[in-house]
Design a protein around this nucleic acid. Structure first.
Lengths: 200, 200
DNA sequence: AAATTAATTGAACATACATTCAATTTAAAA
DNA sequence: TTTTAAATTGAATGTATGTTCAATTAATTT
């Protein structure tokens, strides 16, 4: 009885447009009215699906953070090979990963996490699961004696510190050549960590 | 003839209050009207000293980034000792540095840099000068044979990648003990870099 | 004391914002 | 075809925003 619910479909549509507009004009310049205009719907319809702008923002953050996890789509959890591990490292230090989500928005919401506990928790969860997934891969490779890295957790953490620190600086670098060279250099350090030399 | 100009004094006063309010309530929730209310002056007076809010924002960013540089207040440029270098390392991996400026605002404007070239340039300049200053210290210590780090520039860069990456993750860590332990661990890695083992 | 210059106020502006509520349209089931 | 429930619209609300302009007040010099 009654009409079929479009809730989830519509919500996702709205979030995607929100993401698109915010990516182009920045989160702080993206209003409900603007999103509605792009979608050619009434602003109140957006409020109908997300009661407040806050909730809409949370949904967008979830959307972005889910994309952030897409580096690991390649892996098959059980039988991890050395090639799989290297694939992840290559991905982490490549442009491809950055294409999955918008850096500006990622940092915008990261900054928001300093005042909003919910957002902080979301980010912490994602960053931890990224580290954990890498640690698990390292651990498996170690057990199979493909590499010799006894403390997988620490190694994974260190690699991500390297990744985060690298992008933090490189995002400001406009010289593409310099950008690529540096990234390659840091990638080498990541492999060095996996050689066991860094975490004795 | 005429009245003495208070321009610079007043501008600094306004920026400081702007910083204070933005620190507490977030940049995006801080309006000219709010600043004026706290200062008990008319909003138009703020516009009088900074023609637009954009200009006021740039001034605040300069203010914050200048504070960011305060780690180096200790050093005496000419005769760098090993103690000086260690002092800087200790400072980089300590709470003290974080007290100099507000992390939330620092990241807020960092995120803004992705859309505003002027801000991006400001950040790049600061980050580069931080690296350069450390590299210079390392170089001098190397020349005096206090340490053995031939590539001072790379070592300094690596230490800052470590710093940036560490804080990026640790800012989400609410467990103070875990926070302190990790930071200590990364500090150890920085000293390891200064031992020359990492950049052969 | 008069002239000059800057500080400061106060009122007014148009605009954009998130959100509300009732009314209407649309689609599916009975 | 009637009932039912969700989708969607449209108008309205109050509030806050950055910015303008003219008027007034306060200090400093001649």
């Amino acid at each position: 009885m009654g009409r079929k619910s479009l809730k989830e479909t519509r919500q996702l549509e709205i979030i995607k447009i929100f993401y698109k507009v915010a990516k182009k004009e920045g989160y702080e310049n993206t209003s409900i009215a603007k999103i509605a205009k792009v979608m050619d719907i009434n602003p109140s319809l957006i409020i109908h699906y997300f009661q407040t702008k806050e909730e809409l923002t949370y949904a967008l953050i979830d959307y972005i953070l889910d994309r952030y996890l897409l580096i690991y789509t390649i892996k098959n959890k059980e039988a991890v090979t050395l090639a799989d591990l290297h694939k992840v490292i290559e991905m982490l230090f490549s442009k491809k990963w950055n294409l999955l989500f918008d850096d500006g928005l990622f940092y915008t919401f990261y900054a928001l996490a300093f005042r909003e506990k919910k957002i902080k928790a979301k980010y912490k969860t994602i960053l931890d699961s990224l580290r954990l997934a890498l640690a698990t891969m390292i651990e498996q490779c170690h057990e199979k004696q493909l590499i010799k890295v006894p403390d997988a957790k620490t190694a994974a953490d260190l690699i991500f510190v390297l990744v985060d620190g690298a992008y933090f600086y490189l995002s400001l670098e406009s010289d593409k050549k310099a950008y690529a060279e540096r990234l390659e250099y840091y990638k080498g350090k990541a492999y060095f960590i996996l050689s066991g030399a860094w975490t004795p």
